[in-house]
Structure formats: structure tokens, C-alpha cells
């Protein structure tokens, strides 16, 4: 169980971005999160994935706090894959930063072998996002946070990526948090959804 308890965050001398937020995600559960811009959705995902340390509250996995050393069992997939890969690395090096994904996973995400020797700017956004997804789908990952993962992609690539991620999440018992503006998408992929407008979080 991934639990964020009474999470609050602000930068020093600034207003609260997130306040009094509780969330619990069980393994193999797919939870949607939506709400207007400025409600701290990205901040929340960064708190849960350990990119930011909460000003108050705590993130725990099975009752032990999230460690900031070693591989983080909560992995985040960003909206812009172009920013999430080193522009000077070839694709095979990017994929192998944790461990080389197996052939089967690459095939499932339709990652063509000819891409492996290229640089990120030689791939389109949809192709690059599949690479970014493959990078974090490995046995050490127990929770995934998809922050507007497919907002920049066309409908076909969006559906393709979601099907593969959902397959993987189900077969490996991974908990998934889906952050999106797209109500139809949340309805389609999630078991339940949280509307930030209705819970106790405020700016």
C-alpha cells in the first residue's frame, strides 16, 4: 500500500501548494486524479514519487517511509518525454539506465530495434514516450505515477501506451496513479477517481 498521509508542501516563504492531502493506493489498483490547474497535481505526484520532500506529513510504502537512496519503488512518468531523457544519450543507453528491458516489453510497446541507436531528437514525441515508459517498467517498480502521460500524444499512440501500461500493471501487481484532464480517459482506465475540487486540499 502506498500511503500519503496529511501531505502538505510549500517552498520556503511561499504559499501552500498542497495541504492536508490523504491518499492511499493499493497494489494493482488504478486511481485517477483530476482537478483544475493550480491545485498542485504535479506537486502531489512529485511528493509521492519522492522528487520533493513534504513540508508536513509523510509518504510510506507498507508502513515504511520512502527512502531517498537507491531505486525508488514509486516511479513517475512525465508529460514531456523530451525533457525526461538525456538529449546526448542514445536510446539504448536511456533504456538501460536502470536495467535493459527485455525484448518482449520492447515489442509490446512497439519500440522498433532500429530506434536503439538513435538520439532522442530523432524520435517523435510518441515514440520517445514509449521509451520513457519502458525504462520504468521493471521488477523493482511497485507503484507508477502517470502525470499527464499521454496529453501530448495522438489518440492512437495514447491508446497503445495505456493498453500496454495497464497490462503490465495488472500482471505485475503494480499500483497506478493517473493524473489527467481527460475525464473520458480517467473513466476508461481507472478503478476509482479523486476529484481535487472535493477533497481537503487547497492552494
Amino acid at each position: 500500500m502506498l500511503i500519503g498521509k496529511q501531505l502538505a508542501f510549500r517552498y520556503p516563504h511561499h504559499n501552500w501548494i498542497v495541504r492536508n492531502f490523504d491518499i492511499a493506493i493499493a497494489p494493482s489498483e488504478v486511481v485517477g486524479l483530476f482537478g483544475p490547474s493550480g491545485f498542485g497535481k504535479t506537486t502531489l505526484s512529485k511528493l509521492l514519487a519522492g522528487y520533493l520532500t513534504p513540508t508536513q506529513g509523510q509518504v510510506t510504502i507498507d508502513n515504511s517511509p520512502l527512502s531517498d537512496r537507491g531505486y525508488c519503488p514509486v516511479q513517475m512518468i512525465f508529460q514531456n518525454p523530451e525533457l525526461a531523457v538525456n538529449p546526448r544519450w542514445r536510446i539504448h543507453k536511456i533504456l538501460a539506465e536502470k536495467q535493459s528491458p527485455d525484448r518482449f516489453l520492447l515489442d509490446a510497446l512497439a519500440i522498433h530495434p532500429s530506434w536503439l541507436d538513435r538520439y532522442p531528437h530523432e524520435l517523435s514525441g510518441g515514440e520517445l514516450q514509449r521509451v520513457a515508459v519502458a525504462r520504468v517498467l521493471n521488477p523493482a517498480t511497485r507503484y507508477l505515477i502517470a502525470d499527464e502521460m499521454t496529453a501530448m500524444l495522438d489518440a492512437n499512440t495514447q491508446a497503445l501506451i495505456w493498453h500496454r501500461v495497464l497490462d503490465y500493471v495488472r500482471s505485475h501487481n503494480i499500483g497506478l496513479l493517473v493524473i489527467s484532464h481527460d475525464a473520458a480517459l480517467i473513466k476508461r482506465v481507472c478503478n476509482r477517481a479523486i476529484n481535487l475540487m472535493q477533497v481537503g486540499t487547497s492552494r
Binding site: A159, H163, A184, R188, V189
Partner: peptide
């Protein structure tokens, strides 16, 4: 493209 929308069949 049309079929792959989440509100339609969501099949890529």
C-alpha cells in the same frame, strides 16, 4: 484514430 479515443472503443 477515431476508434482509439477513450470515449469510443479505446483500441489502438
Amino acid at each position: 484514430l477515431w476508434r482509439s479515443l477513450p470515449q469510443n472503443e479505446f483500441i489502438p
